[in-house]
Simulated scan of single mutants.
Amino acid sequence: MTAFNGFGDKALPFLKALGFHQDRDWFAENKALYESEVKGPLGDLVEAVSGRFQAEGVPLRGSRKTSLYRVYRDVRFSRNKDPYNTHASALMTRTGTKKDNGFVYVHISNERSFIASGFYGLDGPQLRAFRDLIVRESDAMRRLVKAMEKHGFTLDMSESLKRTPRGFDDIDDDDVIAWLRLKHFTFIDEIDNGIVPTPELADRMVRLGSLSVPFLDFGWRAIDPLRDEPAS
């Protein structure tokens, strides 16, 4: 099992400096520092957590080859043409790839570091299926949300629709209405950057991932039938 001992003391200072030096020559000169202080430890983190998930029966995995997001930004459709991300992030899923949904995600930056679990960016049919399941099994959804709340995690309500989606106008349960208006279904663990250089970061990922399994199973029941449908 890969060991994770924390990010080095130079990781966050490097990401901060990268924000000031959005320059390909500067990055080329400092790429070795990025590899050793940011990318390498992030790969160690993912593989260490993946091994612990496997040992605990959590159906999420990842590797340094498939789970890490690139430092290079896709600027083709963005007004911001800065070439580099100033954060480090990775996604762990059932397949170990970033194309799957139902995940544990880690995000490290000077501005905000956090771990997230749940479902993000579901396509239209998947989102509708998730909402339909919430309506059909509202009691189960309530139990899952309350179970996470007991451990200090609440659904992120920051991206919600102002109106209830079409087709759900007859719902009168305030909790269900709030869930139906969500664009994403995620629980967030905000991370103090003081633990970024420590093994505790892996512990926090394992804890959130383990606690999230019942909620992830709920969401997978909604979206898996669509996932398995042949392309039209």
Score class of each variant (00 low, 15 high):
Ala3Gly: 04
Phe7Arg: 05
Lys10Phe: 04
Leu12Tyr: 02
Pro13Cys: 03
Phe20Lys: 15
Gln22Asn: 10
Gln22Pro: 03
Gln22His: 08
Trp26Ile: 04
Glu29Arg: 15
Glu35His: 01
Glu35Lys: 12
Leu42Trp: 05
Gly43Pro: 00
Leu45Lys: 10
Leu45Thr: 10
Leu45Trp: 05
Ala48Tyr: 03
Val49Pro: 03
Ser50His: 09
Arg52Trp: 01
Gln54His: 12
Gly57Asp: 07
Gly57Ile: 09
Gly57Ser: 08
Gly62Lys: 09
Leu68Glu: 00
Val71Gly: 00
Arg73Leu: 04
Asp74Leu: 04
Arg76Phe: 00
Ser78Met: 06
Arg79Gly: 14
Lys81Asp: 00
Pro83Lys: 04
Ala88Asn: 08
Ser89Cys: 11
Thr95Asp: 14
Thr97Cys: 01
Phe103Asp: 00
Phe103Val: 01
Tyr105Phe: 14
Tyr105Trp: 02
Phe114Met: 13
Ile115Tyr: 01
Phe119Trp: 05
Tyr120Ala: 00
Leu122His: 06
Ala129Ser: 13
Asp132Phe: 07
Val135Thr: 11
Ser138Cys: 09
Ala140Glu: 15
Arg142Ser: 13
Thr154His: 12
Thr154Gly: 05
Leu155Phe: 02
Ser160Val: 10
Lys162Ser: 12
Lys162Asp: 11
Thr164Cys: 07
Pro165Thr: 08
Arg166Asn: 06
Gly167Ala: 03
Asp169Lys: 12
Asp170Ile: 08
Ala178Thr: 15
Trp179Lys: 03
Phe185Val: 02
Phe187His: 00
Ile191Asp: 07
Asp192Ser: 14
Asp192Gln: 12
Ile195Ser: 08
Ile195Gln: 11
Pro199Thr: 09
Ala202Thr: 00
Arg204Glu: 12
Met205Phe: 09
Arg207Ser: 04
Leu211Arg: 11
Val213Phe: 05
Asp217Pro: 04
Phe218Val: 13
Arg221Glu: 14
Ile223Gly: 07
Asp224Gln: 13
